[in-house]
Design a protein around this nucleic acid. Structure first.
Lengths: 334, 334
DNA sequence: CTGAAAGCGCTTACAG
DNA sequence: CTGAAAGCGCTTACAG
């Protein structure tokens, strides 16, 4: 049972003052090499670690950053968090996690907590409900309290904050163009999330690339309807390729293709928005849009760090867009 | 731009001492109702919130709990975290998240950090590598530093700590018996995680229930091998039911059944260890073992809280097992 | 080069 | 009922 040793105790053991010990351990040039060595020696022996709470109080900071996540079961956000955690370690910041469960009410509670000084800065992806109701007062109050905020992923919101987003629109613009460039004419899109921001953007990218061609859309948040619509696209319209904006529509499309004996990729190419793990695992393996969630997390932490270190111009906010990649597996083989 | 007001400033405005303000805000009986009201009034007006770092320093605590997660992309752990976060809020504790990525090295680093006083207690599921190498020194050092530890999920480890686990063995024992009770004779099991603790337990439950019957096992961590073995079980051995210990084997089994025109549930019943979201979404929907991850998280936080409040007997550790439920969807319809 | 002092923002015995 | 003082464990001007 080791008990934590303090600066004061260390000082007593060494017969020097607390200030000397503190300076020695912090490599202050004021201290003689000899004393410094003595101090460090004993500190090492006792495995001394400064009490972070005391250090933070002294430095008027918390040493933590608050991360607000709408839905942790979504593996995209889970990976973003992972990137944040790794990057925060580099800056010796601890990550405090808050989960809003896509609820505006919960998000308000969280922001209220955050304004009382638990964290040095906040990384947030706003909840769906918040987006829908466009109620941003609680976010502005963070800003009012001088707490730096970085908005990540769901950046379509008018807030004086730095932002890190994913290039949703271009991902499907490029994917659609890829199919066009390979000579495909009938390119369809399936979506179970056409009503939310990222869904809209992906669809927009598809439509922008396809403005001169015919569109083939299967959109519904109701599984039964979506299934019917996708089936129609595959069997009646006989689309040659299908872009799927989300996990549900992707899995459904592959399943329907299989049931209808439409071969992937021979008769139908598919690109989905699913995670690498699932994509590689399916039969055939599924080409997917890689969003680089870890990078989103890392960049968000970096931006916050720069902001905290005053490395960014005040009142001028940065917006970073992480470019997606199209990863080709079996389902897009020509 | 509101700037945070301090006790001292509040005291000056009110012409009373800092102690009086502090006591008034903490509802000390020492303070006259009149003063208390005056103080609270002004505090409300300025939206005063005590600086948590200062309060924590004074109270010799951190106000945070550290959660170590092996793999946040695993939706089980994501949900556990969600439960922890919700429960921690109730106790006004902040959750600091650390992700070990199943790496012993990383886990050691994390534990090293944690011993220097960032948190009041630790909730940990040890990494796979740690389990395999059975190197637990870093965990013992947490205990040595008097940091209460609660081990969750992967509790098969000899550490003086409270534990919250899932009843992996019984889940498959019960599931197997369910099939037996319905008169099935050829009950198989597929696993891509037969080499790790939870996989072993699930298989053990299956074997215990089936001791007098023949076993039908398909185990491999290599997709190609696993696929071959599952296919053999389904087509050659013609098992009537299949228990799958993990996501990979579950998806693979349904796929193979479909390819081989083995109908689910008519010819083959399946129970898998997959999340509700995926289970309900598949065609047909898949019966699954619900592990109640949120509850695991909640109970872990509760235990830690009790331990911190000295509500648990010292040197006597609690082990809680969360009972799983078998959720019947279409794949087990008789 | 070393140390006494002030202070980060609180809480809490203790004196009056 | 109120306030001065000590202290949580540090850091950092400042004096010597």
């Amino acid at each position: 049972m080791k008990s934590k040793i303090t600066l004061k105790e260390l000082a007593k053991l060494l017969n020097v003052s607390v200030s000397t010990v503190s300076k020695a351990l912090n490599d202050s040039p004021e201290i003689s090499p000899k004393t410094a060595e003595r101090v460090k020696e004993l500190a090492r022996l006792h495995n001394y670690r400064p009490n972070p709470v005391a250090v933070n109080l002294k430095k008027s900071r918390t040493g933590t950053i608050g991360v607000v996540i709408p839905n942790i079961s979504n593996s995209f956000f889970a990976r973003v968090l992972s990137g944040m955690e790794a990057e925060a370690q580099k800056y010796d910041q601890q990550v405090i996690t808050y989960i809003s469960n896509e609820s505006l009410e919960r998000e308000k509670q969280i922001c209220d907590m955050l304004t009382s000084g638990f964290v040095d800065g906040v990384l947030i992806a706003v909840s769906e409900e918040t987006q829908k109701k466009q109620e941003y007062d609680h976010l502005f109050s963070l800003v009012d309290y001088d707490i730096p905020v970085v908005v990540y992923d769901r950046i379509n919101i008018d807030l004086p904050a730095d932002k890190v987003g994913v290039d949703d629109e271009n991902s499907f613009y490029d994917a659609t163009n890829y199919f066009k460039s390979r000579g495909l004419k009938k390119i369809g899109l399936a979506s179970a999330i056409h009503h939310v921001g990222i869904g809209k953007l992906r669809i927009k990218g598809y439509e922008r690339a396809l403005q001169d061609h015919e569109h083939y859309l299967a959109k519904s948040s109701k599984p039964v309807d979506l299934r019917r619509k996708i089936k129609s696209l595959i069997t009646e319209k006989q689309v040659e390729a299908l872009l799927c904006t989300d996990f549900e529509s992707t899995i459904m499309a592959t399943r329907i293709a299989y049931e209808e004996k439409v071969r992937i990729p021979q008769d139908l190419k598919i690109i989905g928005y699913i995670s690498k793990e699932v994509a590689e695992f399916l039969t055939p393996s599924l080409s997917y849009i890689e969003q680089h969630p870890r990078e989103v997390g890392e960049r968000a932490v970096d931006l916050l760090h720069k902001r905290l270190e005053a490395g960014l111009e005040p009142d001028k906010f940065v917006e970073e867009i992480i470019t997606t990649s199209l990863v080709h597996l079996e389902s897009t083989r020509f």
